[in-house]
Computed example of a mutant assay.
Amino acid sequence: MVDISRTSTAAAVDVHRTTTASPAAVWEVLANGWYYPTWVVGAARIRAVSSHWPGVGAVLHHSVGAWPLLINDRTEVLSSEPERELVLLASVAPMGRAPVHLRLAPTAGGGCEITMAEDVAEGPARLIPGPVRQALIAPRNAETLRRLCYIAERRSE
């Protein structure tokens, strides 16, 4: 099992974004596993979603890449606190696995700040030096949060 505390190490990448959408509106998007490829950069399609998503142990079966070069993989829920935090274990074979922490904090005016923290915890990608991993993960996660906010803001109109 992956130690989810690894994302608090110096190599972890924290990306923040503030949205006018409420924590409830953002959680609605996170809680619908079928939306995953619309906001997660690199996810191409969903093949199956556990019926208890986003409960602990629930799994998304997804594919990453671009057709026809797709890799089938999965993401599992490690921890779930509605409208506050979702911790996922994302897998991309053969590169490795990475815990992903998504935290929602209410802001004045009814919106929220979303923090996404991620770092590789297992597999060959762990051999990439921390600063290089950060340079690859940070822009991807910034775009991921941008997409998540757009969807949540649209749903809350």
Rank of each mutant, 00 (worst) to 15 (best):
E81H: 10
P99L: 04
P99W: 02
A90V: 08
G110P: 05
L104V: 08
P68D: 06
R103N: 12
L78C: 13
E85L: 13
D73K: 01
P124N: 09
G110Y: 11
D73A: 00
L104T: 03
D119M: 10
V120T: 11
V92F: 04
A121S: 12
E76V: 08
L70T: 06
A117R: 07
G110A: 08
L89D: 00
R103A: 11
S91T: 07
E85Y: 10
G110L: 08
A93C: 11
P94G: 10
E118D: 12
G109A: 08
I71E: 11
G65A: 10
A117W: 01
R126E: 07
E81C: 12
V120L: 12
T107I: 07
I71Y: 11
N72R: 14
L88V: 08
M95R: 11
W67E: 11
I114T: 08
L104W: 01
P94Y: 06
M95G: 04
M116I: 13
V92S: 08
I114V: 14
L86I: 07
E76A: 12
M116L: 14
S80Y: 03
G123E: 03
L102R: 04
V64F: 06
V64H: 02
E113D: 08
E81W: 10
R126D: 02
V92M: 11
P106H: 07
V87I: 14
W67N: 13
S91L: 01
T75H: 00
S79V: 09
G96M: 00
L86S: 03
V87P: 01
L78P: 07
R84E: 12
E83S: 13
A125E: 00
A125Q: 02
S91M: 02
P68F: 06
P68V: 03
V92A: 07
V87F: 05
M116A: 14
A121V: 02
R126T: 11
D119I: 13
H101D: 11
R74D: 00
R126M: 10
L104R: 01
L86G: 01
E83G: 10
A108Y: 11
S91N: 12
G109E: 05
S80M: 08
I114Q: 02
L86H: 00
A105L: 09
L78N: 10
L89W: 00
P124A: 15
V77W: 01
S79G: 12
G109F: 08
R97A: 04
